[in-house]
Design a protein around this nucleic acid. Sequence first.
DNA 1: CTGTTAGCGCTTTCAA
DNA 2: TTGAAAGCGCTAACAG
Lengths: 335, 335
Amino acid sequence: MERFHPTLDDVALKAGVSRAQASRALRGDAGVNEAKRQQVQKAAAELGYRANAAARALASNRSSIVGVMIGEPMNPYHMEMASAISDELLRRGFDPAIQLGKVGQDMGLAETERLLNLRAEGAILIGTPHDLELLQQICARLPCVYLGSDVTHLGISCVLGDDEVGARAATDYLLGLGHRRVAHITGGGGAGAGGRRAGYRAAMEAAGLPALIHEGWFDLDGGRDGVNALMARPQRPTAIFCANDRIAIGAINQLRGLGYRVPEDVSVVGFDDSLDARSESLSLTSVHQPSGDFGRDTVALLEERLRSDGKDLPATARVVPVTLVRRGSSAPPVG
Amino acid sequence: MERFHPTLDDVALKAGVSRAQASRALRGDAGVNEAKRQQVQKAAAELGYRANAAARALASNRSSIVGVMIGEPMNPYHMEMASAISDELLRRGFDPAIQLGKVGQDMGLAETERLLNLRAEGAILIGTPHDLELLQQICARLPCVYLGSDVTHLGISCVLGDDEVGARAATDYLLGLGHRRVAHITGGGGAGAGGRRAGYRAAMEAAGLPALIHEGWFDLDGGRDGVNALMARPQRPTAIFCANDRIAIGAINQLRGLGYRVPEDVSVVGFDDSLDARSESLSLTSVHQPSGDFGRDTVALLEERLRSDGKDLPATARVVPVTLVRRGSSAPPVG
DNA sequence: CTGTTAGCGCTTTCAA
DNA sequence: TTGAAAGCGCTAACAG
């Protein structure tokens, strides 16, 4: 239970330099005799010195803290993003303050308050809040980058996957396999749902086929309801493009429950390429959103805004390329 | 972008009291004239004052930070626990420092270092690390409570569900429905897997039936492989008790993919009662582990240890009662 | 009940 | 390249 923590003075004393020099040496400041730097580092290591984050923040007036608000912690893909972002923040010397959202509830002012108390330098918002009013209130108090959809029209910088291109690729792929009745279960008003709907629409239109849309929502039950509705139509689809993997998983489950085989009777394609999609159990064809790239871009964008300090940069949207990954849940139609 | 932050001096000045009194008033210390307290609070509110967490930590020598290490962020049930714990910490005035584990990788010294830098008062470990050596190293440096299985023999306090009773209840329930060939897909060496295996064994033995165990692991693919193996046996099971919901989901999916109906041909029961289990899509019968209770017990246990300060309390195990929730994935056997 | 006085452990001028 | 000195914003004795 490391109760005693050596201070910088202890290190300085042991290394035979002043506290100021010890501080510089440890932080890699220029202007320190290389030999002394070694001495200081050695002394620090021997004492098991670890800088007190609070003292450092107070003295330097820089907390290094960046809030990470996770809208849906129960959505594994959100967590994959969060994980990538957290790693990237750490790599760049920031200290992530992760906040977990509640089911069916936007994150909001309470979380922002906490970040303000911590003197967070900025925040990254993963698909939350949905409420744009709230989003603007948060962004007015803290430099933010929003992840999931384009909100530049609100003056907010963001990073998003190329939803439209991804959706179009998925739909075109199904059409290319020979499917004609390709349906789409949407993510309703969720982050990215709009672009995916548009991409699907565009692909169907280009093929001269009618769009077959069921308005759903980003969850298992969205997929289940979508399948129930779509398969009850006189003209049953032979392929379904789902707005995310969770919908796709719910859809496959329901299809199989109804006695349809996947992919023999119905092909299913998802979006996100989450860990579950990649599992053998599902082997879900899906649009891959590279979480690593999202992490890097998001942090880079935030850092840029942080560095620009006061000067209001125009809101930027970074669009991350996405790619279709073909797996076992899709095949040409039979007959 | 709230660049300016009023300090306690600003508040004190405005309220016409000393800084010390302002501090006491704001923190709810006893020994402050009630009228003055009001004044101070009013002044603070008007100025938009928010205490600087770093300064407070430095001066009081109490960070209020508690680390929360999440072993499998991509496991929604882990996140449900984490969410409950985070809420409870906040409620009790702690500041959760959430750390996300990587797939297939224990959390370890690097994360501990970070907590030590933050001068965290303690840590809560959710199902990580698996490596007991590592676990002990972490707990030697920071007051910890482990969540998921009994590790009191290592001198570490922990909170866990009543795995054995839960597993027994699930198995007895299936037996009570009339099933004779009840199989179990285990969680391998994962947290809680041992108790669940034992509970299943005990129930089968009490019924005078042979145990039908497939050693799996806590993931979708564990369920898939388990089903493939079990359904290939000459004596196919008519019911499967899975060591967690993820296994159950993989199992159901695979069963349906193979053409079996659930629950008509095979009943499936899970463990955890995660959000997904409760969804209509799955309607999974499962052993409910109340995340709220886990959160409260875990934080209470940690707080107790924190208060006891130096005096080494003996390691305690808090066992949380669990209950079976019957849903659509289980039914009496046909024929 | 209240104010004064010291720091907490670090960074950062400012001179040397 | 170095050290001395002055705080960062707050809490916690200690007197009144």
